[in-house]
C-alpha cells in the first residue's frame, strides 16, 4: 500500500485511518489497532510539524506485510531532515514549541516492536515502524 499526502494537519486522521484499515488483514486486537493508529499519527505529525515550512510538502506512506506477519510502515518526507536523530528521539526533547510534548518517538517506540529512523539534512527523513503479529490466520493455498 502506498499513499502520498500533502503535509497538512487535517490529513493526520486520514493517514492513520488508512494504516489501520490496511492492517485489518492481520486480524489485530482493538489495542493493537490503537497502537498502530497512534504510532502512524505521531510519525505523520512529525513530518507536518518539523519537516516542511509550508503545508505544500509531501508525505509518503508505504505499508507492507512480510511472510512472517510483520507489519512494516514507512513514513517518509523530503523536508529539512533531522540534525541529531539520537537527541530527537529522547523523550521530552522538542523543537516544536511549548504545546508539543516531545513524546512522538517515545510513543512510537513504546507502541511498536521497532522504530528505525534515517535522515539527511535537506533531503528528508524516513521513519520505519515494525510490528509483528502472532495470531494472524494464514490463508491456505
Amino acid at each position: 500500500m502506498e499513499l502520498k499526502i500533502p503535509s497538512r494537519s487535517i490529513n493526520e486522521s486520514f493517514a492513520r485511518s488508512v494504516a489501520a484499515s490496511f492492517c485489518l488483514q492481520l486480524d489485530p486486537t482493538i489495542a493493537e489497532l490503537a497502537e498502530i493508529k497512534t504510532a502512524v499519527s505521531e510519525a505523520v505529525t512529525n513530518c507536518i510539524v518539523h519537516a516542511y515550512d509550508t503545508p505544500d510538502g509531501e508525505i509518503y506512506i508505504k505499508a507492507e506485510i512480510t511472510a512472517d506477519n510483520t507489519l512494516i510502515i514507512k513514513v517518509r518526507d523530503r523536508g529539512r531532515g533531522i540534525d541529531n536523530i539520537k537527541q530527537a528521539m529522547e523523550p521530552l526533547f522538542t523543537t516544536g514549541g511549548e504545546e508539543r510534548a516531545g513524546l512522538g518517538f517515545a510513543v512510537m517506540e513504546s507502541f511498536m516492536d521497532k522504530v528505525k529512523v534515517t535522515s539527511k539534512p535537506n533531503k528528508g527523513t524516513t521513519v520505519t515502524l515494525y510490528k509483528k503479529f502472532v495470531r494472524a490466520t494464514n490463508e491456505k493455498p
Binding site: 492513520r16 497512534t38 499519527s41 505521531e42 505529525t45 511549548e98 504545546e99 508539543r100 510534548a101 513524546l103
Partner: peptide, 16 residues
Amino acid sequence: KFMDSSGIGLIMGRFR
C-alpha cells in the same frame, strides 16, 4: 476515541 501525543501537549499546556 483517539489521542496521540498532541493531546499530552494539550494537557501540559493547559496545566501551565
